[in-house]
Design a binder for these strands. Structure first.
Length: 278
DNA sequence: AGCCAGGGTCTGC
DNA sequence: GCAGACCATGGC
């Protein structure tokens, strides 16, 4: 690891941010750090108290990494705004170190297509095979996330090793539309939310939930509000009237705190002590 | 064995 | 517009 970088960051949890269900591309190391990549560069991230450290075999783009981790946003302000609601304040306080990451659109599209009707450990496994099979590995052995062009040339049978089931045909259609220029990132980032969502839903296998995840995590649309089974349960109990209006511009960020709180705090007794982190 | 998992499509009403 | 069958896979 020739290159390294270091930051001091208050009120941030790298582990909770990487493993709170918004991203499935990082793995735990035995030394307590995490293996992953951004922008095609392999990275080892670690944190001790308020010190975040990045190591890589290639030069580190400090700004890009901070942005990827959502650390370029003022969460003091966002959390204070959302905390005007008492229930949101509870959910945020439970894991206030979480940041909503800014993932590349293509990665988010693939990851959340894979996520549908699936559980987090298996999503992670499928995506690891996906990277190894179609992206190869970089010089230090870390799997590389494949380009859309590579996947667009594949058939459903080519994807068999992934064991991703009925999602294979969805992934291929997404790749073909993405490389074919049928998905406008500008539109997804700037159009009214309903239009952007409808645009994404032209992809076979992308419905409202996956579209909202891609908008939130892959296009930084903080007003997008993905509703999976956990969020539906949590909303029915905690916000029967829906989120308060003032929270709407950041509904997606609120959603991430609610999601993590609902799954791991034990307020829903479905899984003893909450869902386990991989 | 049956149900569930960060759902979506397709058909039939 | 809405319910219900069906879709692959793996863990519990």
């Amino acid at each position: 690891m020739e290159y390294s970088a270091e930051w001091t960051i208050e009120n941030f949890s790298l582990e909770e941010t990487l493993f709170c269900g918004q991203c499935f591309l990082w793995t735990r190391r035995e030394d307590g750090g995490f293996d992953g990549a951004t922008g095609g560069r392999p990275l080892i991230l670690s944190q001790r108290d308020t010190v975040l450290t990045a190591q890589s075999s290639r030069p580190i783009d400090r700004d890009a990494l901070l942005r990827y981790l959502g650390l370029d946003e003022d969460y003091t302000r966002i959390q204070a705004l959302l905390s005007r609601d008492e229930t949101l304040r509870t959910a945020i306080s439970y894991a206030s170190g979480i940041r909503v990451m800014k993932q590349p659109l293509w990665e988010a599209l693939v990851c959340f297509i894979v996520s549908q009707n699936n559980n987090i450990p298996r999503i992670t496994g499928i995506l690891e095979r996906f990277c190894r099979c179609f992206g190869g590995v970089c010089e230090d052995g870390h799997p590389v996330f494949p380009d859309a062009d590579t996947l667009a040339r594949c058939t459903v049978d080519d994807l068999a090793p992934l064991r991703c089931g009925f999602r294979a045909k969805y992934l291929i259609d997404a790749a073909q539309k993405y490389t074919g220029g049928l998905l406008s990132e500008t539109l997804l980032r700037t159009a009214p939310l309903n239009e952007a969502r409808a645009h994404l839903m032209t992809v076979y296998g992308v419905g409202p939930k996956v579209a909202n995840c891609v908008l939130l995590f892959g296009a930084q649309r903080y007003d997008a509000f993905p509703e999976d089974v956990w969020i539906k349960r949590a909303m029915a109990r905690l916000f029967p009237q829906g989120l308060p209006d003032f929270a709407r511009p950041y509904a997606g960020i609120a959603q991430q705190y609610i999601f993590h709180y609902a799954r791991t705090s034990g307020i829903f007794a479905q899984t003893e002590g909450g869902a386990q982190m991989p």
